[in-house]
Simulated assay, not measured.
Amino acid sequence: MKSIPDKNILLFRSCLVSVEYPGVEASTKFVFDKLGIGYKISEKQTCCTGLGYYSDVFDQIDTTAIGARNFKIAKELDCPNLVMMCATCYAINKKSVKLLNKKDDLREHINRLFDENGLSHLKYEKDDLKPTENIFHVIDILYGKKDEMKNHIKYDLSDYTIATHHGCHYCKVHYEDTIGGVRDPNIMDEIIEECGCKTIGWYDHKRATCGTGFRQRYSNPELSFTATADKMNAIEDEDVDILVHLCPNCHIQFDRYQDLISKREGRKFKAIHLNIAQFIALAMGGDFDKVIGAKAHTVPIDSIITELKEVSK
């Protein structure tokens, strides 16, 4: 398994997390602090271009150039380990590092652009970063610390029926770097178990997409919501209370549109939706509003979690 850092981390901020579910960032910081993970945040860091890139607004050159800029910022902070709260940021930044290291013509072209615009200090040298040693998702860092989680658990969430959704951009873009398998992904299931809970494990459509498809949600909603309905029907068949995921786009698709799809399907879906960092933060005693960010959720968290039971010591 790849070496997982716990220091010199640039926690890469996500547009969708900040705008839609700020509790994901607050929860990530809360859990990292509990586990002694060393990280910084930079105001100079910019968007990875994910939404624009996958909607054909940004081309690969622009996206890679923006990545190169962010990578240099991380190096200057002595935080060469970039850790993403968003699976799209993870997929895009890892690809950008791979391209900058392998494609000499692309790297030289981007460095010329920097030179021409007075940004020579941002130039990327080959192998400045390595995709498997410096680019991570938050879930990777949490996995590296999973054995320590039980020491910080305050609340027992084991009475709830829990399922996981690992998402496409963590499991289906960089297969070789995915911890916990890609055919039956289980990295979140293993981490949740360290919090004193069991998930349902495999279920119908576990590996399927959330249905977002970026532009598909808007340009082809029938296809998009059909895929989402498949997932929601599957977890309702299993009587799931909490669906845990690791991508803000998946979070939006499930949480914001659950009532719409419930009406479309003529079936009441009850599950609430939590990012893995929110789930762990909740188990560790994070405040519902200040840490978990419960008020940002469309499906109320307290529609399922009506009270918290402390872990027996």
Rank of each mutant, 00 (worst) to 15 (best):
N233I: 15
A271S: 14
G118H: 09
I191N: 08
G118V: 09
N220L: 07
Y143D: 13
N111D: 05
Y170Q: 08
I272H: 03
T132H: 04
P80T: 11
H165W: 09
E194I: 01
K270T: 07
Y160F: 15
R217M: 15
T228Y: 08
F254L: 09
P248L: 01
G52C: 02
E307D: 13
L260G: 01
G67N: 08
K295L: 06
P300G: 06
L157C: 04
G23Q: 04
K145E: 10
I139C: 07
S312N: 13
T164V: 07
D259G: 05
D255I: 13
T199Y: 09
K198P: 06
Y53Q: 01
C47N: 11
G50S: 14
K34F: 05
P221L: 14
D115L: 09
V299P: 04
E20W: 14
F30T: 06
K309T: 14
P5A: 11
S14Y: 12
S42L: 13
K146Q: 13
K150N: 12
L119P: 09
S219G: 05
A91K: 08
Y203A: 05
G167F: 03
I4L: 10
V244C: 03
S224M: 04
R69L: 07
T306N: 01
H152C: 04
E222R: 11
L10K: 08
E125T: 13
Y39K: 04
C48P: 12
I305F: 10
D6P: 00
D237T: 11
S224N: 08
K95S: 10
D105N: 06
I37M: 06
L82G: 02
F254K: 11
V57G: 10
V83I: 04
I179C: 04
K44I: 06
N233W: 03
I162E: 07
I200Q: 06
F279G: 14
G293Q: 05
A294K: 13
V57A: 07
D204K: 12
I301R: 05
A26C: 01
V291M: 08
F136S: 00
D159P: 00
F214M: 12
K98E: 12
N134C: 05
K198C: 01
K123Q: 15
Q60S: 07
L99F: 10
N70A: 12
K34C: 13
V244K: 13
G201R: 07
G67Q: 08
A68M: 08
Y160D: 13
T178F: 03
A283F: 11
F32N: 00
N117V: 11
E310L: 08
V311W: 00
